[in-house]
């Protein structure tokens, strides 16, 4: 993970304010290509603000963002589906590489097989969240930003979506920035966890989790021996 960081994601936010209030100060981090970084921090500390900056949605800050080439997938804190388009159309409108067939597959993968024709507001909040996750996966993103994507889902479902995320990441190298409140979830998924401290937000502590590829090799070794 040490080489090629210049191709990954590099963020520096020297100063981000809303009005007179400084929200983020001198926050810097990098994510190597294919690295999974989790952001953990108290509510209101500026995690969503940071993701918006990463996504290029908020140019009003002092600093810089460097992102690798390729598409961006983003799961916002709220599902943000177009209520006047069907579930399938919501996915098709982001131009997924695989077209309609890929949309059906990804909907099945998030447990929504056959719900493509539904209106989003006829789905439960948990189902809408899964559509938003499917939308982000569908574009085969080079960078995936996720803002507490599995919150308010029951444990089984959250677990299966985590498995789906892992499977997806195994297929193609994706740099992930994943916001969560759940440290266990962060440890389960991430290569590295950044703990953020509030007012103004900065990186308080960094925790390097055992590299995913090592974890996978060990898991494979266990299955062989067991």
């Amino acid at each position: 993970m040490s080489s090629g960081a210049e191709d990954g994601l590099a963020v520096t936010v020297r100063d981000k304010r809303f009005g007179a209030r400084q929200v983020i100060a001198d926050l810097t981090f990098r994510a190597a290509p294919g690295e999974f970084v989790a952001l953990v921090g108290p509510s209101g500390c500026g995690k969503s603000t940071l993701l918006n900056i990463l996504a290029g949605l908020d140019p009003a800050f002092e600093g810089s963002v460097q992102a690798p080439p390729g598409r961006l997938g983003m799961v916002f804190q709220a599902p943000r589906l177009l209520p006047w388009r069907s579930v399938a159309d919501n996915l098709l409108l982001v131009d997924p590489p695989g077209g309609a067939a890929a949309v059906e597959d990804i909907l099945a993968a998030v447990g929504l097989a056959g719900r493509g024709a539904s209106w989003p507001n006829h789905l439960s909040l948990g189902m809408q969240r899964r559509v938003a996750v499917a939308r982000a996966f569908a574009v085969n993103p080079a960078v995936l930003l996720m803002d507490e994507p599995f919150v308010s889902l029951d444990a089984d479902l959250a677990g299966s979506l985590r498995d789906l995320l892992r499977a997806l990441l195994a297929q193609r190298p994706t740099t992930v920035v994943f916001v969560t409140h759940d440290v266990a979830e962060a440890r389960d998924l991430a290569d590295r966890i950044l703990y953020l401290a509030p007012s103004p937000t900065r990186v308080e502590r960094e925790e390097v989790i055992m590299n995913r590829s090592i974890k996978e090799k060990q898991a494979a070794a266990r299955t062989r021996s067991g």
Binding site: N52, G56, L57, R71, R80, L82, W84
Partner: peptide, 27 residues
């Protein structure tokens, strides 16, 4: 603005955004 952000992140483009994101809100 939240939906406009979605359109931007996913690179929907001007025409698609107008047709599928903006126009339905004006209906």
């Amino acid at each position: 603005g939240d939906l406009a952000a979605v359109a931007k992140v996913y690179g929907m483009g001007r025409w698609r955004t107008l047709r599928h994101v903006v126009a339905p809100q004006l209906v």
